[in-house]
Design a protein around this nucleic acid. Structure first.
Lengths: 239, 239
DNA sequence: CAAAGCAACATCCTATAGGAAATAGGTTCC
DNA sequence: GGAACCTATTTCCTATAGGATGTTGCTTTG
């Protein structure tokens, strides 16, 4: 576990309405940031002690996270964090992203309000100031910005179902290797601006194509992560 | 006291490995079959008594169902079953289905094994014997058959992620009005066979188009359900 | 007669305890 | 020396009890 705070400091910042909700967000962050390593066993009691709550809300939060695909539950053996994406799963993910997000970009170009187009344009332009910060911090900021841009387009597409589906997919993306050098930030910004321009211009086919090209390029940028680190596939999936 | 003997009639047929899993399936069936009406409050204790288990596994199952979108949880007010789909949500659902399932049909046509094509062909042909049975029984059988056909194509498409996504969508479809006269069974069979033929022939564009046309027709067939019954939108969503 | 305030109720949420199963380690036998 | 068996520990899973909160119905007042 290796969590520094022994007892007094709580992980969750402020009580929301229900404790379970807070625990859910806390564990989700733990998994997303790989503080709980992928493929690792998750001890319910230990986690409950760590968060200073009873096992019950932890169990409930874990059940939700299982449906989200962030943890797995083997019937009589407890929970484990979902293993890292294999090369095949990663390719599959980006295939589906191209399909879904290409559609959202096209829909956004077709029927989006003027105010929405403005927001997209601003968001794409704001991608510049990511240069600040260093290392992990910089990477986290970049990832968050990218996620926000894609989610914004999904929101504007006018299909709540499509947006939810894509959001779910993005959670899976975080199961990818988080700590690999992100070299293509400038390229990403350029591609984002191309997409934004097509949407603002109302050119649906161009927006779709720009999005698909962006995702294709992003896939290529992520690819080296599979060669330079050990255990490319599922580390300890003994099921 | 842990292994309680079968008291009265139990809802779940046979213990799987974990009690929570059984409870999850039981509640899911209850919601799918509208035994728990859409938009209705779900009492945890009452449900636990009904299933003859403690509230804990019920709570855990409900958490999973919430992630599935079958129930909603209002922070300090308990769980409610998801309201019936509104017209807009229904249209949205079929838009996304056309996008996703059109893709699966095309992919199936492109790269599916000979054995898989055979299975699809058989499944499409087997759609005939639905004529037996009466009323609810017949409708349930037809729905199950339709779901199996679509799932089979998704499975053969070679994209696990796409298949999972579609499966999740189909759960939402069951939130639609379950008890409306299904008049277009023969049409459905014909359309299914057209799709199957295109996949067997390896014609991806034709398979995609056939699937999209099928879903478009199915949408039209379902449409009257919105006119002949009360509360077309969200009945009691006071959030 | 309507609206606001109050009180009782029902329900959810959290905590704790005990039983059952699987895993891991050591020992014994081949 | 290796493999299988047995035992002990750890962990999960289920059940029950108590505190806190939202909701509902009734009464009272304008």
């Amino acid at each position: 576990m290796a969590q520094q705070e022994p007892r007094e400091g709580r992980l969750r910042p402020a009580r929301r309405l229900t404790l379970t909700e807070d625990v859910y967000e806390s564990i989700k962050t733990l998994v997303m940031d790989h503080i709980l390593p992928p493929g690792e066993r998750v001890n319910i009691d230990a986690l409950a002690r760590e968060l200073d709550v009873s096992p019950t809300p932890v169990r409930e939060a874990l059940a939700r996270l299982e449906a989200d695909g962030l943890v797995r539950k083997r019937p009589l053996s407890g929970y484990t964090t979902t293993p890292l994406l294999s090369r095949a799963e990663f390719d599959d993910l980006f295939d589906v992203r191209q399909l879904l997000e290409g559609a959202t970009a096209g829909r956004a170009a077709t029927h989006a309000s003027a105010e929405a187009r403005q927001r997209i344009s601003v968001e794409a332009a704001a991608s510049i100031d990511v240069e600040a910060g260093d290392g992990y911090r910089r990477h986290a900021a970049f990832t968050a910005l990218d996620a926000r841009f894609h989610d914004l387009i999904a929101e504007v597409s006018g299909s709540p179902l499509l947006r939810d589906t894509i959001t779910r997919l993005h959670s899976h993306l975080h199961l990818h290797r988080l700590y690999f050098p992100v070299a293509g930030a400038p390229d990403t910004n350029t591609e984002h601006q191309r997409i934004a321009a097509a949407i603002v211009a109302g050119d649906a086919p161009a927006a779709t194509e720009a999005m698909r090209a962006h995702l294709s390029a992003a896939r290529e940028r992520h690819l080296p992560a599979f060669d330079q680190l050990p255990t490319p596939g599922t580390p300890r999936d003994s099921a």
